[in-house]
């Protein structure tokens, strides 16, 4: 169990949490949107600095303003990937508040912030939007073409050991 870690994906509905996991674990992507009901569990083994880490990935249903994920799903997590959708400001407008309440709930648990769907932006839009994001340490990803997806998960894996 020593090298098993619970990793949980959080963020609003439809930002691409499931797509990121699918891309990372199975190298697959689909344009269809099938909202996640409850939780999906996946597993991926990664080598970090010569050490095997097995990530047990909890892909939870997305949040909306009406519906928050109960904290009990988040408890026991060793790492968090917080996902936003670059095209939907509503998914990152209150991100600072979200992150700080996560830090309260799970002190010292590393959080990687992912801005997803960058394949939908032109170069010009990309620069513009990124400059306007309230936080600057995002990993810019596309679950669709796979760019930076591995990097995002690896970044988290590194901070897990």
């Amino acid at each position: 169990m020593g090298n098993s870690k619970k990793v949980i994906l959080l963020g609003n509905f439809g930002v691409g949490k499931t797509s990121l996991v699918r891309q990372y674990v199975f190298r697959k992507f689909s344009d269809d949107y099938m909202t996640t009901i409850g939780v999906r569990i996946d597993k991926k083994m990664v080598a970090v600095n010569g050490q095997e880490v097995s990530m047990i990935i909890w892909d939870v249903a997305g949040e909306s303003t009406h519906q928050k994920i109960p904290n009990s799903y988040k408890l026991g997590a060793h790492g968090i990937i917080y996902v936003i959708d670059v095209l939907r400001p509503s998914t990152y407008l209150s991100i600072e508040k979200e992150i700080s309440s996560l830090e309260d709930l799970l002190p010292n648990v590393p959080i990687v912030k992912v801005a997803n769907k960058i394949d939908l932006l032109t170069e010009k839009e990309r620069i513009e939007i990124v400059n306007n994001l309230p936080l600057n340490d995002y990993v810019l990803c596309s679950a669709k073409n796979g760019s930076n997806v591995e990097d995002a998960f690896n970044k988290l894996a590194e901070s897990l050991i």
Partner: peptide, 14 residues
């Protein structure tokens, strides 16, 4: 078994 353990825990939490 890792995945079953996760799933059982998720169901329990639910």
């Amino acid at each position: 078994q890792d995945m079953v353990a996760g799933m059982l825990t998720a169901i329990k939490t639910f």
